[in-house]
Nucleic acid binder design. Structure first.
Length: 111
DNA sequence: CTACTGACCGCGA
DNA sequence: GTCGCGGCCAGTA
């Protein structure tokens, strides 16, 4: 098993419920800055038996990576909503649900 | 070995 | 909102 993949999986597993993260953020947290694509590759062939919260990973702009209307797309939308994440038109407001939402609130004074 | 692909990203037009 | 472009680099043929 590739050590990089393990770190990526670990980073994904660390996303708290009700929160989402971008591929780039995961890459950075896995010690692989700038390798967002690798996260995509790792996620693509992830055995779903690991109970990995793959659905909490989105594009940097908050859109769902899978093609609209696809099986995975619906599944992801469904699971996110089940956690209370606001999914509108295939997109999640990162400012409110992203990993750095807390930091953002602190910096921008939002709430 | 080269060539192409891609669950990506940020920037500029 | 939509391209296009360059950067990234592991997989695959």
């Amino acid at each position: 098993m590739d050590k990089r993949y393990q770190r990526i999986y670990a980073a994904i597993a660390a996303i708290p419920a009700g929160r989402v993260a971008s591929y780039g953020q995961i890459a950075a947290r896995a010690g692989l800055p700038g390798r967002a694509r690798l996260v995509g590759t790792a996620l693509r062939d992830t055995p779903d038996g690991l109970g990995l919260p793959w659905f909490r990973v989105l594009h940097a702009d908050g859109t769902i990576a899978l093609p609209r209307g696809s099986r995975g797309f619906r599944e992801q939308t469904k699971r996110l909503r089940a956690e209370g994440v606001d999914v509108r038109n295939g997109r999640v407001p990162m400012a409110a649900f992203g990993l750095d939402a807390d930091l953002d609130r602190a910096l921008w004074g939002l709430n």
